[in-house]
Computed example of a mutant assay.
Amino acid sequence: MPVSFRGKLYRALNPVYAREPLSGRGAELYGGRFNPKGVPALYASLSVMTALREANQVGNLQPTTLVSYDAEIERVLDSRDAGELATYGMDTPALAAATWRDEMKTRGIARTQEFARQAMADGYHALLVRSFAAGASDDDFNLVLWQWAGVAPAKLILIDDEHRLSRSP
């Protein structure tokens, strides 16, 4: 059963993509746990610290641009609903499987990416899912957006009142 999300979201971006914080281009190019290559997605977090953990999962803290959004997203698949996950043949351990990158290499698509593709086809705009980054707790969540725009039903507005990201370097 879809739920709605309304509130602040945070992303810690590679500075290469900082001037396009709404593009989803990095995820589209490389694929992510919950989007296959060729499908744009925005991986956002419900807290600043979760966003930093997500963006810097390997090695030392790297240069990072932190952005925030006001979000009003309808049709969110809540991964805490075991029954809903089961309709897609998924459960929490499958969502957390560290093998998704290996599956992408060997099969061309990971099981979690297939799950995401099915959820998108069913009209879901996003997935609310626990963070699996090192150091994350059971209370650290991400919202993976597959659809977003400046208007409902998947409204995502970058908070940049001073137009800092649009200024020339």
Rank of each mutant, 00 (worst) to 15 (best):
A116L: 01
E20R: 11
D138K: 07
V129R: 00
R53G: 05
Y43L: 04
T112M: 10
P93Q: 11
Y30G: 12
E28G: 10
R117K: 15
R53L: 15
L9N: 04
A96C: 07
A41E: 09
R101C: 06
V3F: 00
A119Q: 09
M104A: 11
Y69Q: 12
Y88C: 10
A116I: 07
A154P: 15
G7K: 00
K37G: 14
F5T: 04
R101A: 03
Q118I: 11
G150S: 13
V76E: 03
P63S: 08
K37V: 10
E84R: 02
N142C: 04
A55R: 07
I73T: 02
A133V: 02
A94S: 06
V3H: 01
L29Q: 12
L77G: 08
D140I: 02
P169N: 11
V151T: 15
E74R: 12
E20Y: 06
L143N: 02
N14F: 09
M1F: 02
R80S: 02
P153I: 10
A51V: 05
T87K: 06
R117I: 07
A119T: 03
L165N: 14
S79L: 11
Y10E: 05
V39A: 14
D70H: 15
Y17N: 15
V129G: 06
A136L: 04
M120T: 09
L66H: 15
L165I: 15
L127H: 00
Q62A: 10
V67H: 06
T112V: 12
L77T: 14
S166K: 13
D140Y: 00
A97R: 01
T87R: 02
E84F: 00
E103M: 11
S68I: 08
R130I: 01
A110N: 03
R11P: 13
G150E: 15
L127C: 01
V39P: 00
V39L: 12
L77Y: 07
A96N: 03
R107Y: 10
F132T: 14
A110E: 03
L127E: 02
L46H: 01
L52W: 01
